[in-house]
Design a protein around this nucleic acid. Sequence first.
DNA 1: CACGTGCATATCTAG
DNA 2: TATGCACGTG
Length: 855
Amino acid sequence: MTEPNRVSPFPAPDHQPVAGGIAARARAAASGGARYLAGLNTEQRDAVETLDGPVLVLAGAGTGKTRVLTTRIAHILSQGRARPGEILSVTFTNKAAREMKTRLAEMLGQAVEGMPWLGTFHSIAGRILRSHAELVQLKSNFTVLDVDDQIRLLKQLLQAENIDDKRWPARMLAGLIDGWKNRGLMPSQVPPGEAAVFGNGKGGKLYASYQERLKILNAADFGDLLLENIRLFREHPDVLRQYQSRFKFILVDEYQDTNVAQYLWLRLLSQAPSSGSSLPGSPRPSIASSEDGSPALDAARRPGDDDKSVAVAGPAPKNICCVGDDDQSIYGWRGAEVDNILRFEHDFPGAKVIRLERNYRSTAHILAAASHLITHNEGRLGKTLRTEDVEGEKVTVTGAWDSEEEARGIGEEIEELQRKGEPLNDIAILVRASYQMREFEDRFVTLGLPYRVIGGPRFYERAEIRDALAYLRVINSPADDLAFERIINVPKRGLGDATVQMLHDHARKRRIPLFEAARAVVETDELKPKARGSLRGLILQFERWRTQREVTPHTELAEIVLDESGYTEMWQKDRSADAAGRLDNLKELIRSMEEFENLHGFLEHISLVMDREGAADEDAVSLMTLHSAKGLEFDNVFLPGWEEGLFPSQRTLDEQGRAGLEEERRLAHVGLTRARRRAKIYFATNRRIHGTWTTTIPSRFLDELPADSVEITESKGGSGWGGAGGYGPSRFDNVESFGSSYSTPGWQRAQARRPASRGASEGGFQEEPSPFAGRDPFGGSFGGPFGRNKRGPLTIEGELVAKSTGTTSEFALGDRVFHQKFGYGKVVRIDGNKLTIAFDKAGEKKVVDSFVERA
DNA sequence: CACGTGCATATCTAG
DNA sequence: TATGCACGTG
């Protein structure tokens, strides 16, 4: 604080009073000659310093996007252009929001408590909605429904309408409704043709009644958080104006992923407060009349002014800055509109477009491969990434006979890297579809190679977490029917469908909540004595918990509830493999409750911000889908499964045609650009699809890589068919049948390298047993594509275990053990540090002893 | 009502 | 192949 006198004009932000104020600290930092600007390149600096008017920052992969965003915020603050509470900064994921907060804190020197409007689209929209809930027929304590609740509710509606939910699954309707909401459509705005496709023309009506039900339940789904927010703004211009003048600056991360609803929301907020009367009506309005008073933040207007005086001071500039990369738009299927970013200059006239093209992440070869690949897309804004890094290793392309060999090859390469001292944390395997992961998991388990799966079911989507939350929700609001219904018979209490149906009927007739209905029904003889007693017991328990709530801390209460309800016991008794993990999750849930003031506060935020962040300290290979890899980077990246049908996915091609292909290509681009030093692509000639082996052809994307940056290598795990590795015999040999696409230099070389003596050129491998089946040099089975001897005698696997210690195992034959993935089992064979275990559920498996513990 | 069996089905997946 | 769900039986 070199200039303490300048601190006083800045009242602490309205929401989170912070001693010392971020703005003040930022400005103090700035007084040292804007140190935060040092180290930025010209474009980055331009992106940070262009504060007035709309700005689109096209930030290619690895060009320092987050850095620009956070520095820009620091810059705004230090220039005194706005207070922390006047900057709206939106991201898609909690993770991204957290990261920005952390980086900002580093930059400004302390925890960032004072950025109340930095968050995800949903959390911010939800927060605005809560302050004005009554204007959209909700109460401020409305519940945010998760997908499960949503489905349950829709099922009820389908039943009421007598629609066969087999022909018309609730899931499908949920998808449609979600899609409509993503596009900003209220029930009345859905094109009649579209509404009719579901349930013999009842789709639109169902959507409408679903919305009605939500209001009655005082609930909103994720889509509503934005959609209702838009409605709020449209129907109450005064409220809109309030936010328009509050937010002096808007920043948007990953703009290419925004959907129409988010676009509309941003557009409303980014308009000047006084022109708020002309509201967008159509989903894609163009902003007329904005050239007039665009930039011009009056130099006289300092942030010391309060909102009111600013509003009077004249039209606020549309200081919106969107950062994104059209080449990384991979969520089209989720409603994202690449169009939003492609049309930015049109939507925000006078916009300045800044391209960040200097890549700080990857070596030249990797970057060349990724850039060249992506040029095959047509609809793009166009960027040319460049690097000053070394050339590095070429991108490798390796063919494997089948997916098992692929996994073996990658496993071996990883062990080689490991021997060279490469940390496993710097290695990732990125797959197109999650089912590809299994093969790698199996392989790593046998190798004793630590790995972690990123993505998958999110923490709060897990059944045990939602069950636990449902108990708490019922305690918190007795009228939460969906929660009550969820746990009424969990654990089993003998209260099945019949009972629930009865309660429903009663509740509907009397127009009372289910819980209320239950209370009434137990006083009657309508239920059998057993069910009645059981239900009464449950009601009494809830009433007791509600009383306890007044005197017990909420974390403790949660423990009591889980305990007394028998829920914990239910999982303790469960002997399935994941039961232990579920109990851990419950503990984790209770631990996370500590961060909140009370039960109510916890529940209000839970569905929006719960994230599981697994223990990441351990050194392990990361395994994830390409989608969940976005935003991450690793030194070494393996990209298996580059085959037609799988990648690009046939289904995407069928459903989306050319657009689908382009999105798949962007996915490939994302995959490659995750790599800092090594990118290794694999494809298999044979892959099992739903149980049957199919011969595949290499992905067309391989042909789109620049020959100069690619090296064709042999599979390291290729001992399977004579150690030759190379390319599997397939119809692929018949180049003519694929036209010219396989005549690229890379392929010619690939062809040339193939062992001619193998003479495996006649197709038809799908039907005929491979001539090489069983011919592996170790005399064992090689687990070829025909599935024989899959779990045969000791194979070469044994030799691949790099870290066999030679010490004898601490386990004895017959020991009862537990394994994270396979559950409980008995040791039936010991071989050094490798155990063969007969698992109760998973059958016989060979694992390394460090992966099991005594049960 | 709880449990077992048979059958259809099969991407990616934020909030 | 494997999982989830819808139905039928004990």
